[in-house]
Amino acid sequence: MKIKWGKRTFTFLIIPDANSKVMRFRFSAILLYSLPVIGLILLAITLFMNITGMKNLNEKKAIAAQLVVQSVTFEQQLTDKEETIEKLQNSLVELSEQTEEMKLKVEELKVFEEEIRGISSNDSDETTSREVSIAAYNHEVKSLSAGVGGATQNASDEDITSLISDTEQTLHSLTGDIGSLKLQLTDTKELIVQNIHMMRITPSIWPTLSTKVSSRYGYRKDPFSRRAAFHSGVDIAGDTSDPIYTTADGIVTLANYDRAYGYNIIVKHASGVSTHYAHLKKILVENGQVVKQGETIGLLGSTGRSTGPHLHYEVLKNGDTIDPMPYLGVRD
């Protein structure tokens, strides 16, 4: 006999107690046999969801941990960047201060250079009037505007740090060099002062506007007797009333008229040196007067034993005449 499962049913009786009504529940066999399958399916779904949820949770935790690590890394990088920026700013401030010090030292050197230039140049108006003008070319450099270009490569923090370090070393080196240069300039200035002082107390300039020598020092044919005679100075031709300048600082020891020298002046200088100016038209100083190099002491003329307007100029060393030409910067 075949059993028809689709029509077979199961009845469940529930008797609460003797006096209560009996409750009956009737289920088909298919439903009862399907319950375990449904339960297994639900269990499988539950397990799958739990496993999937755990996996997602682990992935979320991993992502969160990775984000934490990246956040810490970014914060450290940001801190390093801020420290680098601060160091760069401090370095730039130090460089700025050193630059200001350099500017001050350069300004000091400029002042020094001006002092040396002032010392080296002759600021006497009278001396300037004696100097012969020399023509010179003035080369003028004209700046032309030009384009610039090229590929650009941004500098890294390391490049900037290295640049700052190199610049600091260069500035320190320049500071030392400028200090040494300043000492050298000080010594040079003192030497120049000494040299200028020696030049001022030593006959070293022309006593006239003219530089035309009409008769040299030594033996010559006397212009009056036409015989050989010793000439104790040099004759410098010029125009009547041209100014006569003392060739070095000194004191006037003689200022009078002489039959041979006419109106004449003797100025005593340092180191036993004296200078003699003769045949003057007029004397502008007096005996005992202190005179400075380049000062006008008389006017050119032709008084005394003279054939025409000129200055007879002598240089004496310890009372003896010597050739004046080397003192005028002229060498034989």
Results as ranks from 00 to 15, higher is better:
residue 57 L to Q: 13
residue 311 L to V: 05
residue 143 S to H: 04
residue 76 Q to H: 11
residue 211 T to G: 01
residue 161 T to S: 13
residue 232 S to G: 11
residue 151 A to N: 10
residue 160 I to K: 04
residue 216 R to E: 00
residue 329 G to C: 02
residue 200 R to S: 15
residue 240 T to I: 05
residue 64 A to N: 12
residue 116 I to K: 03
residue 139 H to Y: 12
residue 50 N to G: 06
residue 187 D to Y: 04
residue 2 K to Y: 12
residue 182 K to R: 13
residue 13 L to F: 15
residue 268 K to I: 02
residue 187 D to Q: 10
residue 290 V to Q: 12
residue 209 L to E: 07
residue 111 V to T: 13
residue 331 R to S: 07
residue 255 A to M: 03
residue 115 E to D: 15
residue 138 N to K: 10
residue 114 E to H: 06
residue 73 T to F: 05
residue 111 V to Y: 03
residue 137 Y to D: 15
residue 22 V to E: 15
residue 78 L to R: 08
residue 61 K to G: 06
residue 245 Y to N: 04
residue 200 R to N: 15
residue 2 K to R: 13
residue 121 S to R: 06
residue 117 R to H: 12
residue 132 V to P: 04
residue 81 K to G: 14
residue 96 S to F: 06
residue 225 S to W: 00
residue 302 S to F: 06
residue 155 A to P: 03
residue 21 K to D: 12
residue 81 K to Q: 13
residue 72 V to A: 15
residue 21 K to G: 02
residue 124 S to Y: 01
residue 222 D to S: 02
residue 87 K to A: 08
residue 150 G to N: 06
residue 42 L to A: 15
residue 311 L to M: 04
residue 152 T to A: 10
residue 254 L to Q: 08
residue 40 L to I: 15
residue 197 H to A: 14
residue 131 E to M: 08
residue 317 K to N: 01
residue 7 K to L: 09
residue 81 K to W: 04
residue 122 N to G: 11
residue 54 M to H: 12
residue 125 D to G: 14
residue 94 E to M: 10
residue 257 Y to W: 12
residue 91 S to I: 02
residue 190 E to F: 04
residue 96 S to C: 01
residue 294 G to C: 07
residue 58 N to K: 09
residue 212 K to A: 12
residue 263 Y to M: 03
residue 26 R to P: 01
residue 301 G to F: 10
residue 76 Q to C: 03
residue 159 D to I: 08
residue 145 S to A: 10
residue 100 E to W: 09
residue 225 S to H: 00
residue 194 Q to F: 07
residue 207 P to W: 01
residue 229 A to N: 09
residue 232 S to W: 00
residue 281 K to P: 03
residue 70 Q to Y: 08
residue 242 D to P: 03
residue 320 D to E: 14
residue 48 F to V: 13
residue 87 K to S: 07
residue 131 E to P: 01
residue 38 I to T: 11
residue 245 Y to S: 06
residue 138 N to R: 11
residue 126 E to W: 06
residue 280 L to V: 10
residue 147 G to R: 01
residue 84 T to M: 08
residue 20 S to E: 08
residue 30 I to S: 09
residue 175 T to N: 12
residue 185 L to C: 07
residue 63 I to R: 14
residue 14 I to W: 06
residue 294 G to F: 07
residue 107 E to Q: 09
residue 301 G to W: 06
residue 81 K to M: 12
residue 283 I to Q: 08
residue 283 I to H: 05
residue 78 L to Y: 07
residue 176 G to T: 10
residue 129 S to A: 13
residue 12 F to D: 04
residue 38 I to Y: 07
residue 166 D to H: 07
residue 246 T to V: 15
residue 65 A to M: 05
residue 67 L to N: 14
residue 79 T to K: 11
residue 3 I to D: 06
residue 61 K to F: 05
residue 18 A to D: 14
residue 167 T to A: 10
residue 171 L to G: 02
